[in-house]
């Protein structure tokens, strides 16, 4: 399967992978590769978004994603404003719509939003003229994470089509799994997901994946093994017994990694619970590309902002 890159993105916003065609995904990944070149320069900055304002609206704790967006914005010469709050609009006595209208009044070009509730970026996108970029909404989507994962796989394995990717862990509350399954299956990869049956949401196969309960079955012969963070803070006490038992059945140990292809990639979106879903020997081992994922995150976010701003062609040309 070869996908020709689109010439531009159709939407004003990036609220989810679900809205993207394979051609648009290809364009984003190709553009991200060009952005990577900027990071290798002595002066890591281009004027592509000079005069553009980006509001980073993080209404849920985040370090990696927020810093990654900020670095991306600075490298493109955009002006960034950071707004952090762990609360929701309702806790502050303001509706999401009011928050949105207040932000709009400051005339930003972009709003990058991280929110604990699914759909919040869509509600903003509907109400605002600014481009809305979803930096993770509830258990729904995390599109830039899926794009950076795809970029990492493509660069390490040469292609996405035909790759067998195993994704394991907390499938019910993970936004990373939804975006990844949709993106990878759309680009021709075979996706297997695995997790305790009590954490497998109904109909997840409809997103484009095979469902396994045993981790070993999902990993066998895979090109990529991606572990998901167990969202300890989101768990009730009824989904699985203990962290200890979880590690016993779903922890990625060196023995289990051997079931995958010899040169399989080990990935994790972070932050990791070492000793829960992944053993440190694996996380820090030779097959791990976890830190490269972080590096690629900046390039992907540059590409997203650049393309949503209407950019095309060589971003580096002044």
């Amino acid at each position: 399967m070869t996908v020709k890159a689109a010439s531009h993105l159709r939407g004003k916003d990036l609220v989810g992978i679900d809205q993207l065609s394979p051609e648009e995904i290809q364009l984003l990944l190709d553009t991200a590769e060009q952005m990577q070149e900027i990071a290798k320069r002595p002066i890591k900055k281009v004027p592509a978004l000079r005069g553009k304002t980006v509001v980073n609206l993080f209404m849920e704790p985040s370090t990696r994603t927020r810093f990654s967006f900020e670095v991306a914005e600075k490298r493109l010469s955009a002006d960034s404003l950071n707004f952090s709050s762990s609360g929701t609009s309702v806790e502050k006595g303001e509706t999401l719509l009011d928050t949105a209208r207040n932000l709009e009044a400051m005339q930003p070009d972009f709003i990058v939003i991280r929110h604990r509730y699914a759909g919040a970026p869509h509600q903003l996108a509907r109400a605002l003229k600014s481009s809305v970029v979803n930096a993770g909404d509830g258990a729904h989507e995390h599109p830039t994470q899926a794009l950076l994962d795809a970029l990492t796989i493509r660069q390490k394995r040469g292609t996405l089509a035909g790759q067998v990717v195993a994704i394991a862990g907390d499938l019910a509350y993970s936004r990373v799994v939804r975006s990844n399954v949709i993106l990878l299956s759309r680009m021709g990869a075979t996706v297997r997901v695995a997790g305790p049956p009590s954490l497998v949401p109904p109909g997840i196969e409809a997103l484009g994946c095979e469902v396994h309960y045993r981790l070993e079955d999902a990993i066998a012969g895979a090109d990529v093994v991606m572990m998901l963070r167990i969202q300890l803070e989101r768990q009730g006490k009824m989904n699985f017994p203990t962290v200890r038992e979880y590690y016993d059945f779903f922890g990625l140990t060196p023995e289990r990694v051997k079931l995958a292809k010899k040169d399989a990639l080990v990935m994790h979106p972070g932050p990791m619970n070492r000793g829960v879903e992944i053993d440190s020997r694996v996380a820090d081992g030779p097959q791990s590309v976890i830190l490269e994922q972080v590096t690629n995150g900046v390039a992907v976010r540059m590409a997203v902002l650049y393309l949503l701003a209407g950019g095309h062609g060589e971003p580096v040309a002044d």
């Binding site: 759909g119 509830g138 936004r175 939804r178 409809a206 997103l207």
Partner: peptide, 9 residues
């Protein structure tokens, strides 16, 4: 169902 799964609700 499948729709709630897709929407993350």
């Amino acid at each position: 169902g499948p729709v709630s799964t897709r929407l993350g609700l």
